[in-house]
Computed example of a mutant assay.
Amino acid sequence: MFDHAERRRRLFEVMRAEGVDLLFVGLSSDLEYLSGVERGIPFFGQSSYPHGWVAGGFFRPDADPVFVLPRMVVVFDLPVRPEGDIVVVDEADDGSAIFERVARGLGARGTVAVGDRVWAETTLELGRIFGLDRLQTGSSLVNRLRRVKTADELEAMRRACRTVEHAMAAVAPQVQPGVSMAELREEVEAQLRVAGSLTPSFATHIFTGMDPDSLDSGAPTARDPLSDGTPVLFDFGGVVDGYCSDFGRTIVAGEPPDGFVAAYEAMLAAFEAGRTACRPGALAREVNAACREPIEASGLGEHFRHRMGHGIGLDVHERPFLSPEDETPLEAGMTFTDEPSIVVHGSFGLRIENVVVCAEGGARVLNEYPNDLVTNG
């Protein structure tokens, strides 16, 4: 589906321009992007194999990649063999010696870049082999390529958006007095699987606010029953073909509290202002400021406590960020979340989140689920 050879060709252009002879990336979204080596489904804790630190791939301009992988990864975690050479490290092998032999054999004489998602031991070994002064961070090189999505990538992200929309449609009617956040979370994740999501793209979060006594799927109040007239905030995502969605809506169990409807209208205005500002040439911080402006004008600015959004793709959070410190000029085809929220302590919360694509005239929205306020009266 994805042209990994073309991705590597573009990487090599960046490496040559930056004077980088060799790039090593571990098992990560960067490696999947460049080679098709899929990541496993995340889980609590860390799996470990003998010589696990060697796992990854070396990339150098105009050559096939060279992968160094523990035997257990090759046998159990590599359903499709990637293009390039694979050096297998057995449990009884001298992993350090094999890794050094492969690394030195690639002939790098200048800068060696190291991906962000590698073991500390890997970086120390590369420093020993090449000299620490020759190392630099490498994921920024790949991020330049990953920021702008191709048509195939956008189609995968659309499918990931459909999984969350299916789940939201199934779960929304269940937001009734007496339901718990844990029950809603369990149903959301079950419906994601029904819709074809490989896994949640991050920990599903369903909550009523940010006060200590608020109901929250990740807190001790997860099993407490919902009261009538309480808004429930949803934040969850799905994964299709390696690409993520990140989605949010607010559903009210009954009639909304005082001030809620006006706040919801301000939030929708913020969403639209951010979407309209998300166009090529705009700075990321400017788009964030545009999103904030309607909420500030409504007098609720102090209750919008985070940024407008973040890049999204193979990872649910990617650079650049739509936030005050980010000076990145946007390009057509970059993908972001547009997620204004208002959380008033001791009163109510509300949020919305869609995935948008930077475009001339304002971003296109990949989601199809309505933004309208839903009340289950």
Rank of each mutant, 00 (worst) to 15 (best):
L135I: 09
P225A: 02
D77S: 14
I98Q: 01
L268M: 06
G281D: 04
L330R: 14
G346C: 02
I342K: 01
L330S: 09
G110W: 11
Y243K: 04
H310G: 05
G131P: 02
I295A: 04
F207N: 00
I86K: 03
D77M: 15
M15E: 08
F12G: 05
Q136G: 12
E6V: 14
S201Q: 04
D62P: 05
W119P: 13
P82L: 07
H345K: 13
G19Y: 01
V252H: 03
A113W: 12
P220S: 06
V87H: 06
V87P: 02
F58Q: 06
T335S: 15
E13K: 14
V240P: 00
S35N: 03
Q176L: 04
I342S: 01
L69I: 07
V188G: 05
L215V: 03
F271K: 01
P42S: 05
P79E: 02
H51Y: 00
R193F: 10
H310M: 08
G254Y: 03
P256S: 03
A17I: 04
A170K: 06
A160T: 04
S323C: 09
G313F: 12
N376T: 11
D94S: 06
S214L: 07
M334K: 12
P280I: 09
M157K: 12
A363C: 09
N288T: 15
G259A: 11
L154S: 10
C278P: 03
V179P: 01
L373T: 13
C358D: 03
T137G: 13
L27Y: 15
E293I: 13
R275L: 00
T208D: 01
V37Y: 13
L11W: 10
I251Y: 10
R319G: 09
Y33A: 04
F336E: 12
H205Y: 13
F304K: 08
D62Y: 12
A151F: 14
V232R: 05
R275T: 03
F12I: 15
E32S: 13
N288A: 14
R147W: 14
T208H: 04
P42Q: 11
P256N: 02
D258Y: 12
D64L: 12
P370W: 11
L268K: 15
L215Y: 00
V232L: 00
A120M: 11
E125F: 12
E18A: 01
A290R: 10
T221N: 09
E318L: 03
G309C: 03
S217P: 00
G138I: 07
R249P: 00
P324H: 14
V25N: 10
S47P: 11
M15F: 14
N288D: 13
F99E: 01
L198N: 14
P82G: 07
S298Y: 10
P231F: 11
L300I: 10
V20T: 03
V374A: 07
Q191G: 05
P340A: 04
F271P: 00
T337R: 09
G361I: 15
V175C: 05
E360N: 11
E83T: 15
R285I: 15
F236Q: 03
S217T: 03
F44M: 08
V25W: 10
E121G: 06
R8T: 02
C358Q: 09
F43V: 00
G84C: 09
V80N: 09
A289D: 01
P200I: 11
E38A: 13
T208G: 02
D216E: 00
E183K: 12
D235W: 11
